[in-house]
Design a protein around this nucleic acid. Structure first.
Lengths: 129, 129, 129, 129
DNA sequence: GTGGTCTAGACCACG
DNA sequence: GTGGTCTAGACCACG
């Protein structure tokens, strides 16, 4: 999996790293139960501080995206039990609202928005296929 | 318009303020050409420093959401010329991808996602109605 | 002469007004000894405060571009005695240096810069034709 | 690099600072990828507040002249891809027009103007050498 | 150690 | 009266 970090961006490195791994999982580039590189290895590959990778892994673990086993290192979580509610978390819902607000001001209507989402969803092979 | 800031949140105050005003514009709570409170007034109402409001206004101005007129203060921009492309900016597209990735992992499919977007869009009365 | 002011710009209104009149003189739209509108008239036409026009006129007078006669109002100065030195004022030289610096960083070389100046000079019919 | 600020001038301190750094880059005093002083250090050296330096850096970053890396602070950007158009931005073009207008009124013709630009260009060693 | 954010308070240019 | 700028000082996230 190719990870590229924007060193001069406004998003913290650990957060960029976390985001890219989440997208990797969603797109199937990283499969459930797949082993992730060690903190040390990934830090070296990316040329960042081990603390940065550590923070990303800790965040992913806390969110349930990965599990960390002292013996086997980090690996992608098995798919969770299907959530019958299928609601967005408050945080995600808030972010989505902000995106839609900006899209709406730009003149994008729901149908157009849907057609913008479709190709993104098409890349996500994680669960619902 | 009611604005509430989360003082202990991770999002900077000036950015929270910017976000809420953007949503206010999109939902029609703030109408095009409507005058915004003065920097001083809003700072006092919110209990924050004038520079915090100043930074939010400067950001909104730079993004084209408001215009700042030395004579009359800040007001909501007139609707821009309709952009025939109707694409999302790279930044927005990236944020949307991340949201969809997280939704997909949670088992939300495109149809469900659309039904989650619908009520949000319904609140946005800005342009496309 | 058509004057358009950018109300939400970063350049003060009186300075924009002064700049446009200077360009008007240089391009010959305003001829030497031509009478300018009264402060009151111009302020009304532009929809700005009379103080703003007053400030612009005072600045133009101080710089020698116009003369103000209590009986006849303001008019464009007669061409000054030719300055044999033909140097730029320190302020203008500094502004020019900054423009050239930015152009150079962008990869514009002297020849290209000259070709960019040519059509601008072509519009200036004031003295040297 | 020597930076001198005019404390009583009309140009804001942060803008003077930005201008001098741009000129420093263009003249080669600051080389691509060269590290800039920290915000704190430069503020102390110049006797101004850190927020003033911060604002100058933020502006330079936004304009693409420098990159700010959370790991190593600010440094001069690498030269951008050569722009085949080589046009001036509207803002720069407008400023140049105003300078040329004032020069023309003073009796400076295109040839003389070119000879005034030449020594300024000679100092700019940034890209085109 | 770095830049980013924020406060309380002030002065100023602009209009 | 408005936004713009600036200070002195502080705390924090990031790495």
């Amino acid at each position: 999996m190719v990870i590229t970090l924007q060193l001069d961006g406004e998003v913290p490195l650990y957060e960029q790293l976390r985001n890219q791994i989440v997208i990797g999982i969603a797109t199937g580039v990283l499969e459930p139960r797949e082993k992730l590189p060690t903190v040390r290895q990934l830090a070296e590959d990316l040329g960042v501080n081990t603390m940065t990778v550590n923070k990303a892994y800790a965040l992913l673990k806390q969110e349930g995206y990965i599990v960390i086993d002292r013996r086997h290192g980090a690996k992608v979580s098995a798919p969770p039990e299907s959530d019958p509610r299928q609601e967005l978390s408050p945080k995600l819902a808030q972010e989505l609202e902000l995106i839609i607000a900006q899209a709406a001001i730009q003149g994008i209507d729901p149908a157009r928005f849907q057609s913008l989402c479709a190709p993104i969803f098409a890349k996500m092979t994680y669960r619902y296929t």
